[in-house]
């Protein structure tokens, strides 16, 4: 009886793990798309509104659901509050704090990190160049992410259950 209960638990755990992995693969391209939209929004704020960076980031954060929005909000709040650190430091810290809540991977993180080195530090034409570059790179990552999703999402969905089943069979 106890053995059966254990087996059920194992099966359940592995299935959930499989679903979680599948979910991660499904969320990644969505979040990259959100990131791209946010950066496009930021570009508009910078070129047409000439909105100062803290307000611009806040506006972007408001239009973007978490966890991606939280990244911008975190940076905006730190910028508005703290006068003795550079955008670069604050940006890196926001990434450090918020990235773990997203499903995105190292590739996107590097692109966003790179963006932090130039954000707010040049005239608007130059800013646009950097933002466009980031968007382009993110688009590349997105294609990869979509491919991965196709390949691995359904696989993980069944793989979890199957792995659980294998373990249960081995143990029995």
């Amino acid at each position: 009886m106890l053995k059966l209960l254990g087996a059920m638990l194992i099966l359940l755990a592995f299935t959930l793990f499989g679903f979680y992995q599948a979910h991660q693969f499904a969320r990644r391209p969505k979040q990259i798309a959100e990131l791209i939209r946010s950066i496009q929004r930021l570009e508009t704020e910078i070129t047409y509104g000439f909105t100062p960076l803290p307000q611009a980031l806040l506006k972007v954060a408001e239009a973007c659901p978490p966890p991606v929005g939280a990244l911008f909000r975190n940076a905006a709040e730190a910028l508005a509050k703290d006068g003795c650190r550079s955008v670069q430091q604050i940006w890196q810290e926001a990434i450090h704090n918020q990235w773990q809540h997203t499903s995105m991977k190292k590739g996107e993180q590097d692109i966003i990190r790179q963006l932090g080195f130039t954000l707010g530090l040049s005239d608007s034409t130059d800013q646009v160049k950097h933002l466009r570059l980031a968007i382009q790179q993110l688009q590349g990552e997105m294609d990869g992410a979509q491919e991965d999703r196709k390949r691995y999402e359904s696989m993980w969905r069944s793989l979890g259950l199957l792995m659980g089943a294998l373990l249960v069979i081995l143990m029995y």
Binding site: L53, G120, L121
Partner: peptide, 20 residues
Amino acid sequence: REDCSILLENLTQHSLYSFE
């Protein structure tokens, strides 16, 4: 250099582009 870049960032609210 850092003192100066932070000063400039604070003067321009971290956004040089809006102070062209």
